[in-house]
Computed example of a mutant assay.
Amino acid sequence: MTDRPVPRIVAVVVTFNRLALLQRLVARLRETESLAEILVVDNASTDGTGEWLAAQPEPVTAVRLTENRGGAGGFHVGTRAAYDAGADLVWLMDDDGVPEPDCLKVLLSHWDTDGGYDFWGPAVLAEQDPTRLCFPIRLPGRATVVHRMSEVEAAARDGVIPDVVIPFNGVLVTRELVERIGTPREEFFIWGDDVEYLWRARRAGARTGTVVAARFLHPATDDLGTPMAFGRTTYNHSPSDLKHYCMARNNLVNLRDYRGWPAALAFVAKTAWFYTFTRPSPARLVISATAMYAGLRGDFTGHRRYLRG
């Protein structure tokens, strides 16, 4: 890495009603060298988060939203605020994950305008079992997904898996990239906003990768990557109707916009198979169809019916 001035790095954390987890994360970020600011976007929490944030000294700052705008709205607001505050690098993360103490330092070793990365992040490991990935990934040149960290380490080149990154879980984004592509798509509410931002970055020519020596712990969700079609593929099933609605709507829109209609129609067929044969659920088929139709019409309001008051 060439010598460079010390960058202004702003960590952007989006939170909603998870005060204990937020406190754990903020404590870790306070211990992290090189951070200029810890900017927390509070999605109108009702569990004391706002009061706790108001009492926090620098470098913690808070933006309190008047309504829950989801992760997508939170990252949209937070990325813009960090950019307006002069950030050279924006470090994006949810409130329920936590970086290892040296995570940022290791990531920064791969920041270099002469051949470095624009949108890069750590290996995201299951907090319950750090030998496993929290989110299964497909390694470059492979047809199947992998679940174990050992497989990722074995596949790395110079400590990096190029063109693979799990966004919004400790990912760094450069100021220059934000200037080129803007901020995350706020109307998605949850699910798929991170993938859309990554695919938008790649379309703009961003250099992406996972730095395997940088580690970020995140609670694993067993239903993510549920096997289907006799184990030949997986489906992102969630027991939450809200999450499923947003996933079905936003994923179809992302596939249509970035991968084309064949990929979008394949996702429709995959969803129909999963809730017809893998985990039969007529109710989920109805939710899926409703969500997908709304997305194709550009209606991003339907998820509100699943929000608890």
Rank of each mutant, 00 (worst) to 15 (best):
T2I: 07
P7D: 12
V13S: 04
T15V: 14
T15D: 07
F16M: 13
L25P: 01
S34R: 15
E37D: 06
V41K: 08
A44S: 10
T61K: 06
E67K: 14
G71V: 09
F75H: 13
G78S: 04
R80H: 12
A85E: 04
A87L: 05
A87W: 05
W91K: 06
D96I: 04
P99T: 10
D102F: 01
V106K: 11
W120P: 01
A126V: 03
E127D: 09
D129P: 01
D129S: 12
G141L: 04
A154H: 03
D158W: 00
P162S: 15
G170I: 04
V171R: 08
L177P: 01
V178W: 00
G182T: 01
E187R: 14
F189Y: 12
E196C: 12
T208Q: 04
T210Q: 06
V212Y: 02
A214T: 02
A214N: 03
T221M: 14
T226G: 03
M228G: 02
A229L: 13
Y235T: 06
S240T: 07
Y245V: 10
Y245E: 08
M247G: 10
L252F: 11
N254I: 11
R256T: 13
D257A: 15
R259G: 00
W261Y: 06
P262T: 07
A264E: 03
T271K: 10
S288K: 06
A291P: 02
G298M: 07
